[in-house]
């Protein structure tokens, strides 16, 4: 009995510990690590949202950049052009991409395998083409600069020009999103997702409406990708049509694969490791993409389940 109890306690303990360490960072380190970790957390959120559809449902989407970029504009355009608050901007950064994801997903989930990959790329390409050419609204490839007004939480006003405040805001939102996704993949709903990934035909025969479940996962992933884009834009104070390009989705793919897809914790690790690698490598050589590509390919060949999968395999 004891080991099971231990196991049950392991995650909350680890989660609290990691969260506590991250929350303590601003007290020990200077601003650099806060801004760096803010970025890592944002990309980690992007990667876990991708992990939901790829790692759990088995849909390889190269179109998540569309939702990431839209999330950014959903924060930037209302605050800049309509004078709306940051809070409503953040809500929009979930709602608008989720709505688009519902539209894109409605068509895309009818396809499987390679066709699904291609259709998501095409939707993202439409997004970036429109974004780059509709310069009066989006600023095109030059982008939009905006200064987010303080976030009104009722009890407190959060000044988003302050690095520490932004860091805590991002940390809190990413932690909540992580718990939300973890809860979901462990719920009966998550079991259906995995059943679809493992054998779509069987899931259908058991009586699940496979398309509806896929669409649900796609919309949730789209909303969270949008939230990641919204937080990124808030921390940068900048939104750009270049964030809509399908190749930006490559970030999520790389982090998820290297860390271990279908584990949630893997993509977070992947984001942290790859970004740290890039950060330190950049002082040695400029060709960081070379290393990222090589790490990706060698992970696929040597540890197809990623770092987390590799570690779990060894433990067994």
């Amino acid at each position: 009995m004891l080991p099971d109890k231990w196991k049950a306690a392991a995650f909350p303990l680890a989660f609290v510990l990691v969260a506590a360490v991250l929350a303590a960072v601003p007290f020990f380190e200077d601003l650099f690590y806060q801004t760096f970790l803010t970025e890592v957390l944002v990309w980690a959120l992007f990667a876990i949202s991708f992990d939901l559809i790829f790692g759990y449902v088995g849909l390889l989407s190269f179109g998540q950049a569309l939702f990431f970029g839209l999330g950014g504009y959903a924060v930037a355009i209302p605050t800049l052009k309509l004078g709306m608050g940051t809070g409503s901007g953040l809500l929009l950064s979930v709602a608008v991409p989720a709505a688009f994801a519902a539209f894109v997903g409605f068509f895309s989930v009818r396809l499987t395998g390679i066709h699904f990959v291609i259709i998501t790329i095409i939707f993202a390409l439409i997004g970036s083409t429109v974004g780059e050419t509709w310069t009066s609204l989006t600023g095109g490839a030059d982008g939009l600069v905006f200064m987010p007004p303080p976030l009104d939480l009722g009890i407190a006003q959060l000044d988003l020009m302050d690095i520490r405040t932004t860091y805590y805001l991002v940390l809190a939102i990413v932690a909540i999103s992580y718990l939300f996704l973890r809860r979901m993949v462990r719920s009966p709903l998550g079991k259906v997702f995995v059943a679809i990934r493992e054998n779509e035909e069987r899931a259908r025969l058991i009586g699940y409406d496979v398309r509806r479940y896929k669409l649900l996962a796609f919309v949730i992933a789209g909303g969270l990708s949008g939230l990641a884009g919204g937080l990124y834009t808030l921390s940068l104070k900048y939104a750009s049509a270049t964030f809509l390009h399908w190749s930006v989705s490559g970030h999520a793919v790389v982090y998820a694969i290297v860390g271990g897809a279908g584990t949630l914790v893997g993509p977070v690790l992947g984001a942290g490791l790859i970004m740290a690698l890039e950060h330190y490598l950049v002082n040695l050589l400029q060709a960081t993409d070379l290393v990222v590509g090589a790490v990706l390919v060698s992970t696929l060949l040597l540890a197809p389940m990623g770092i987390v999968g590799f570690l779990r395999g060894r433990r067994k």
Partner: peptide, 9 residues
């Protein structure tokens, strides 16, 4: 995904 990595390289 693998050929995407090869493309980057």
């Amino acid at each position: 995904i693998c050929t995407f990595g090869i493309m980057l390289v």
